[in-house]
């Protein structure tokens, strides 16, 4: 085939047929299956469901990579199409599922990052903390590329095993997953206290140290998170 018009027609047909929507839907379906398995088997003590969830996470990740590969194919074909038929407009990318497809998304507020938590941080019923080293920026890039699964029942994006919500202006906020820690009110208060006291329990404000609402379990949980803080010093050092 040497006629540029015919070649362009084939390229357009191929671009239309690339299974972008099917793969996004597949990731959404897989994410929903994972949620249902996790919810149904929580606390049962069996290894098989955990292994199943790990395999599903693998499937979602590989499908996400395939989606990125489709993006590359689309880019290359559009570039060739522009050369083949001067003046042609590249075919636009497919819409992204969920709210991220309706508005530009922006990174989570700094208050979510562990090293930004401080005395003035507002305490909420649920407080998700992002541990240092968690690739939130990479997650946002993946969401923008349409590689995240959208879980409509939970109103969350699932990407790289992490769940994110999107506020109306487009600000992404972390929910749960590897590198994200969800703390309740008391745990978060304890974490703030540890950060303020640089991990020294003897230097805690007395009102907090004697607060009956903050239990030993809360302190333990906060201490586990504080170990990731930039000011944390091991007792061994």
């Amino acid at each position: 085939m040497s006629n540029p018009g015919e070649i362009a027609a084939v390229i357009r047909a191929v671009l239309e047929a690339l299974p972008v929507d099917a793969l996004r839907a597949a990731n959404t379906a897989a994410g929903e299956s994972a949620e249902r398995i996790a919810a149904a088997t929580e606390g049962t003590g069996h290894d098989a469901p955990r292994e199943a969830l790990a395999h599903i996470a693998e499937g979602i990740e590989r499908t996400g990579e395939a989606l990125a590969g489709l993006g590359e194919i689309r880019e290359r074909l559009n570039a060739y199409l522009a050369v083949l038929v001067p003046g042609v407009e590249a075919m636009v990318a497919r819409p992204i599922a969920g709210p991220a497809g309706k508005r530009p998304i922006t990174p989570p507020n700094r208050r979510h990052h562990l090293n930004s938590v401080g005395r003035k941080s507002q305490v909420r019923e649920e407080n998700t903390v992002i541990l240092p080293g968690t690739d939130v920026r990479g997650d946002l890039d993946a969401i923008r590329r349409g590689e995240a699964a959208w879980l409509p029942d939970r109103d969350r994006c699932l990407v790289n095993g992490r769940l994110y919500g999107v506020e109306v202006p487009g600000t992404v906020y972390p929910d749960e997953g590897p590198g994200l820690v969800k703390l309740n009110r008391s745990e978060y208060k304890a974490l703030k206290g540890l950060i303020e006291a640089r991990g020294d329990m003897d230097s805690l404000p007395s009102a907090l140290a004697n607060n009956p609402a903050v239990t030993g379990a809360d302190w333990q949980r906060a201490a586990e998170v504080y170990e990731h803080h930039k000011d944390y010093r091991s007792e061994d050092t």
Binding site: A26, A48, E51, I56, E58, G59, I60, R62, T63
Partner: peptide, 18 residues
């Protein structure tokens, strides 16, 4: 990548069966 995803989901189904 898609073949690997298929293999992963088959393994997941197998675990669920177990």
């Amino acid at each position: 990548r898609l073949r690997r995803a298929v293999a992963a989901y088959r393994a997941a189904v197998s675990c669920c069966d177990d």
